[in-house]
């Protein structure tokens, strides 16, 4: 009975919030927090390395106009989950090198779907894949494994605009 009720729930019934916006001017530069960001459709966040073409992976054909990660993942890491020998640490929103930190958004479930962030529309092109690069940069051994399968999303910007922390993140039909 309970299972039936859950199945009848709309799997896309959630509402989330944008917590933080970060950009970096070039590869390896420390991330900087923004109180407001301009998203340009088909390109990126104004001032960010992947908008400017100065990112580590800029030369690679891929979608990384804007990247997102869940605050819930950062909180799990802060309490030592997953339990990987030798891995502990705190990953702050300014450290993880994704652009947007979200709360209440099931990012992994959105691959291939559109969703709203404030007045903008993003298309979730692929799951983000963690990289040894960030482990090295932050001097946090084990972080690569710690982020496997929960490293967030790489998105294209379909409708640009201005976003701010506190903006609602909402699912869209289709």
């Amino acid at each position: 009975m309970l299972a039936q009720m859950i199945l009848q729930e709309d799997p896309m019934r959630w509402t989330g919030t944008l917590l933080n916006i970060h950009i970096a001017p070039a590869a390896s530069y420390e991330m900087e927090e923004l109180a407001e960001a301009q998203l340009e459709a088909g390109r990126g966040i104004v001032g960010d390395r992947y908008y400017l073409g100065t990112g580590t992976y800029s030369a690679r054909p891929d979608v990384r106009e804007v990247t997102l990660i869940e605050a819930e993942v950062l909180e799990a890491i802060a309490i030592g989950e997953p339990q990987i020998p030798g891995f502990k640490g705190e990953l702050l929103p300014e450290d993880h090198r994704r652009n947007l930190t979200t709360r209440g958004v099931p990012l992994n479930h959105l691959v291939g779907k559109r969703f709203r962030v404030g007045e903008c529309v993003l298309y979730a092109a692929r799951m983000n894949f963690p990289c040894k690069y960030i482990e090295e940069l932050l001097q946090m051994p084990g972080l690569y494994e710690g982020l496997l399968n929960r490293s967030g999303l790489n998105c294209a910007i379909e409708v640009g605009g201005v976003i701010r922390p506190g903006d609602a993140i909402l699912p869209m039909e289709g």
């Binding site: 580590t56 992976y57 030369a59 690679r60 894949f129 990289c131 040894k132 690069y133 690569y144």
Partner: peptide
């Protein structure tokens, strides 16, 4: 393989 730039270690 991922980055093919000598950075990611894949």
């Amino acid at each position: 393989a991922s980055c093919e730039n000598g950075l990611c270690g894949s």
